[in-house]
C-alpha cells in the first residue's frame, strides 16, 4: 500500500470515495416522492432576468386564485412598480392597491376602520390570523407566499448538490412549486388517502390538504395568453420567485460589474507580483 506514489494514492482514495457515495445515494434516494424536473426559467443562470409579462400574469393568478387562502405579508403594493419587478406603472399600482380594503386604525375615537389600500400597504391578507386560516382550511395552514419559493427545495442527491455550487442553479424551490401545481392526479388503487386530503405525486408523503387550485381557464389573462394549467402554474411560480427574491435582477447585474472589476484587479496584481518577485530567485 505504501508503494503507491503520493499522487496515485490520492486519486485512488478520492475515486473510491466518490464511487461509493454515488452508489449509496442512488440506492437510498429511491423514495416514493417523484423527482422534480428542472424547468426553464428566464431568471435562471447568470444572465437571468424576470419576464415582466409573465410576472403580471402570475400576479393575476395569485390575485384571482391563490390570494383567497394565501397571504403575502412581506410584499408591498409599491413593489409591483419597482425596478426588476412586474413592471406596473405607479398609476396602475395605485389602482390595484385601492381595489383591496385595508383595516386601519384606531382612529381618533378608538375605532378600527376600513379604507382602500395604498401603494405603501402590504398585500392584504385573506385571514385575520393563523387560527382563522386554519379554521377555514380544515386545520391546515396555507403558508405565506412571500418567501415560499426560497423555502422549498427538491432532493438533488450526489453529485448534483456539488455541481449546483458552480452552475448557480438556485431554482429548486420554484421548480418544486411548478411541479406541485401540475402534480395532482388520481391516487393509485392501493393508496389510502385520508379524508379531506388530495393526492399529489410531488408532495412529501403524497397527501396534501390543498385541493387542486388551478384548472383550465381558471383566469382569463388580460394579455390574451391561453390559460392552461401549465401556463398558470408557470406564471404564478415565477411571480412567487420574484416575491421571494425581488432584488434578483439588480443582484445579478451588479455581480457582473463586480466580477469584471475583480478579474481586472486580479490581472494587475498578478503582473505586479511577477514583476516584484523577478527581483529575487524563487
Amino acid at each position: 500500500m505504501f508503494k503507491l506514489s503520493g499522487y496515485n494514492f490520492k486519486f485512488c482514495i478520492l475515486f473510491q470515495i466518490i464511487f461509493v457515495l454515488f452508489f449509496s445515494i442512488s440506492a437510498f434516494a429511491a423514495g416514493e416522492q417523484k423527482r422534480v424536473q428542472k424547468h426553464d426559467w428566464t431568471f435562471a443562470g447568470i444572465f437571468g432576468h424576470y419576464d415582466d409579462a409573465q410576472l403580471q400574469r402570475g400576479f393575476q393568478v395569485y390575485r384571482e386564485v391563490c390570494s383567497s387562502c394565501h397571504s403575502m405579508n412581506y410584499v408591498y403594493y409599491r413593489n409591483l412598480a419597482e425596478e426588476g419587478g412586474p413592471g406596473f406603472t405607479v398609476e396602475e399600482v395605485k389602482v390595484i392597491a385601492s381595489e383591496d380594503m385595508i383595516i386601519d386604525g384606531p382612529d381618533d375615537y378608538g375605532e378600527m376602520f376600513e379604507r382602500p389600500g395604498k401603494p405603501s400597504d402590504t398585500f392584504v391578507s385573506p385571514y385575520a390570523n393563523q387560527n382563522e386560516a386554519r379554521a377555514s382550511n380544515g386545520g391546515a395552514y396555507p403558508p405565506d407566499f412571500s418567501v415560499l419559493a426560497k423555502a422549498r427545495s427538491t432532493l438533488r442527491g450526489f453529485p448534483w448538490w456539488f455541481v449546483d455550487l458552480f452552475t448557480g442553479y438556485q431554482e429548486q424551490g420554484v421548480d418544486y412549486i411548478y411541479a406541485l401545481l401540475n402534480g395532482y392526479s388520481e391516487p393509485p388503487d392501493d393508496f389510502i388517502l385520508q379524508s379531506g386530503m388530495h393526492y399529489n405525486e410531488y408532495y412529501p408523503g403524497n397527501q396534501i390538504a390543498m385541493g387542486q387550485p388551478l384548472y383550465e381557464e381558471s383566469v382569463e389573462y388580460a394579455d390574451g395568453t391561453a390559460a392552461s394549467v401549465e401556463q398558470m402554474a408557470e406564471d404564478v411560480s415565477a411571480f412567487m420567485m420574484w416575491a421571494a427574491e425581488p432584488k434578483l435582477e439588480i443582484r445579478k447585474q451588479m455581480g457582473f460589474k463586480v466580477a469584471i472589476f475583480l478579474f481586472v484587479l486580479a490581472g494587475l496584481l498578478y503582473y505586479s507580483k511577477k514583476k516584484i518577485w523577478a527581483r529575487i530567485e524563487h
Binding site: L165, G255, A259, L262
Partner: peptide, 12 residues
C-alpha cells in the same frame, strides 16, 4: 472572485 460568485449568483 469565488466569494462574489456566491454572493451574486448563488447566495442561498
Amino acid at each position: 472572485i469565488l466569494f462574489a460568485w456566491f454572493i451574486f449568483f448563488n447566495p442561498n
